[in-house]
């Protein structure tokens, strides 16, 4: 199976778990070495972005050439 397909499956699995979580549960997003608390909606949005861009996300530097 392709890496892309595996990634898609993993993200869909995570989205499914997120959906099933009660609303009072806190959710964290792992960014670099930090875990940032996010809302469920933000987590879903980030995961959907991963689906489009891949886990690297935005790695561009500001003002870089």
């Amino acid at each position: 199976m392709e890496d892309r397909e595996l990634l898609k499956q993993q993200i869909e699995k995570t989205l499914e778990i997120l959906k099933q979580l009660p609303d009072d549960r806190r959710v964290f997003y792992n960014t670099g070495v930090l875990m940032v608390e996010v809302t469920k909606k933000e987590a879903e949005k980030l995961l959907r972005e991963h689906l489009v861009e891949g886990p690297g996300g935005n790695t561009e530097t500001q003002g870089g050439e």
Binding site: Y29, N30, T31, M35, L47
Partner: peptide, 12 residues
């Protein structure tokens, strides 16, 4: 707080 994959962790 447990990892549920794809860089997301959730409080359980």
């Amino acid at each position: 707080v447990v990892s549920i994959g794809s860089g997301i962790s959730a409080e359980l």
